[in-house]
Design a protein around this nucleic acid. Sequence first.
DNA 1: TTTCTCCGTTTGTCCGTACAATTGGACGAT
DNA 2: ATCGTCCAATTGTACGGACAAACGGAGAAA
Lengths: 252, 252
Amino acid sequence: MALTPLDRNSPMPLWAQLEADLRTRLEANEFAESFPTDLELTEAYKVSRHTVREAVRHLNKTGVLKRERGRGTVVNRAEFEQSLGTLYSLFQSVESAGVEQTSEILRLEVTTDRLAAAQLGIPEEAQLVLVERLRLAGGVPLAVDRAWLPHEFASTLLDVDWSHTALYAELAKAGAPVPNQGWERLTPIVPSSADRAMLGLQKSDAAFFLERLGCRDQRPIEWRTTIIRGDRYRFVTDWSAGTRSELRPTAD
Amino acid sequence: MALTPLDRNSPMPLWAQLEADLRTRLEANEFAESFPTDLELTEAYKVSRHTVREAVRHLNKTGVLKRERGRGTVVNRAEFEQSLGTLYSLFQSVESAGVEQTSEILRLEVTTDRLAAAQLGIPEEAQLVLVERLRLAGGVPLAVDRAWLPHEFASTLLDVDWSHTALYAELAKAGAPVPNQGWERLTPIVPSSADRAMLGLQKSDAAFFLERLGCRDQRPIEWRTTIIRGDRYRFVTDWSAGTRSELRPTAD
DNA sequence: TTTCTCCGTTTGTCCGTACAATTGGACGAT
DNA sequence: ATCGTCCAATTGTACGGACAAACGGAGAAA
């Protein structure tokens, strides 16, 4: 992917234009092998090292890059993927603990769903692909995951081997759009007896209920609900005055 | 409070020393009236404007300052207080919605508690002050809050008018240490029938259970549990690829 | 083959300068 | 009293330069 020359007549600062271009190239996985050095970027974009460092500093506000003097800059893939929201942070925290994640298909079908359609902003009679899975960590139930996606571009999901757990990878493989932004909402619930049975929960156990809307180019393309065991997974934070703290999912 | 001169022989970068000094002064509320300009800081600490801007940039990583060209720098108190963890973020989100927060004392007594003592790292027979309150937002129950603090320095809490909601302000007023860091843990629970009654919850309702340890100078001085209605308050996040996202509490 | 040294590369730190964009207050005009 | 103009103050943007700290690879020595 060719770089975008900077526009010195633009009211947008040079560092901001440079950051946007680098971000686009980063999301296109162009820096998997190596990230350009400060010198390479000054030469490629014809700006000073100060401007390059300012752009990279902003790009790196989320810790997506690892920079070290003498060594250079590499892309922190784990951090990049963690930026796909709470659900993927949870999956990643399980993976970081070295626990194998698998899933069992509960339902894989074309259906309609009034609530999902409403969230996706499409007619309620529109056909949706429902992927309902029981997710396990180390063979133990972790969550019941239900994803509804418009049939018009998610139909290829019907032909997938779902013992893997990567919905987005399957979408990408099929050339379908993959969500890259959205919102999530976390609520405590008492699961239904059917969900309790699947998760191996007692009658007195509560669980987390995560609702998630995934969009591409501002367009909703994924509505998802996930019931997460609250006895094995919870959210923790270290807080400190003057320092931003954030809840992160962790296994008990 | 006098500023701390920078040590140019220290391996610690100048900007890092300057940041630490500014942070200390910020926590001592020294910049309530005004935050020094870049020029004032270069003159006071005898460093370049570049070093000053680097220090302020780091200090401001949490958004605790608001900087604008032409206007100057002011302290963002709301952001600073929000950095006291999820519980205070919740309280603040209610306040930002313009809803009055009050509290009713349920229990205010000297007691012992094995779990609290364990979390505080003191003998289980040690005397603790228990402040148990029902917290309301706009007259509607929001949470049941229980705080245990060692009696040796929290005894003044026994003489307080608790219709206000500011535990830390009361501690500060009494000259007692106030927590400035710690950890929190969020779990979903089915509340007891007593707690359900106080919160106005149905039998089928789950709630959030927040456990929190507050420390000062690395020493635990507050153990706290809070049951938060899950039907009225939840955690939401906006996520975006390549950008850090965080769950924040919000009223429904 | 292994270890050590040297050196080039890379980012971090620090300095200085210049100018632009924005803000707010002072002051004059109405 | 109100409005408009001007200007100083303040932060943001951009450049250039210099040197330090850390790293890794090449090549020599053992």
